[in-house]
Amino acid sequence: MGDFQFAKILGYFPDLVRGVGITLELGLISASMGLALGLVLALMKYSRHPLLYWPATVYIEFFRTTPPLVQIVWLYYGLPLLTGFDLGALGAAAVALGLNIAAFYAEILRAGIIQVHRTQWQAARVLGLDLKDTLRFVILPQALRNVLPPMGTTTIYLIKDTALASAIGTPELLRIGQLIAVETFRPVEALTIVAVFYFAITYPVALLMGKMESRLKAARV
């Protein structure tokens, strides 16, 4: 068995930091993409107009019910074959994760919008606000506040899911850890360090969400 040898791993510190950078990039791109697309999908499904409702519903169900790993692999290998358009490993992973998380964000945001009382729409309408301003200033701030905790949890899931990008060779944190494990023959130590780095990324996100939540609560009372 022997003992743990973390010293060996720490020699790879610069590589690990680079991996953290790629992981953050993946998370940031897919989260912003997921938020924008998720918001559009949520509104499409909320509208109940069949031409908006059904495409959004099909999209959401498709991406919720298939594994993100399959979506990543498909976008990386399948898309170039079909269209000749190659996103590269980082691009394919970021886009696939963004498309995937959009489905989850959409359902959460829609729940948040539903919770906003119908009379808020009416009040905005009587004041003459158009749809865009009604959403931006009246409905969405309240909707987002309603669903901040599940949005935070989903975002943390997303950050951890960026590890799936390692499957197509994106040099993100887990992939770097795997390479270190192979070079040093110390997989347990390597992956332990990797886990600590993931914690260092996700825990601040959790803290930030908690802070936002209590700030909003304080503003309400």
């Binding site: 808020q120 009416q122 009040a123 905005a124 009587v126 003459g128 009246v138 309240q142």
Partner: peptide, 17 residues
């Protein structure tokens, strides 16, 4: 809507503002 103002039974103020 420029000409009409309406006040509701349930106030309907925007709670986040």
């Amino acid at each position: 809507r420029d000409k009409v103002g309406m006040v509701f039974q349930s106030f309907n103020l925007f709670p986040h503002l």
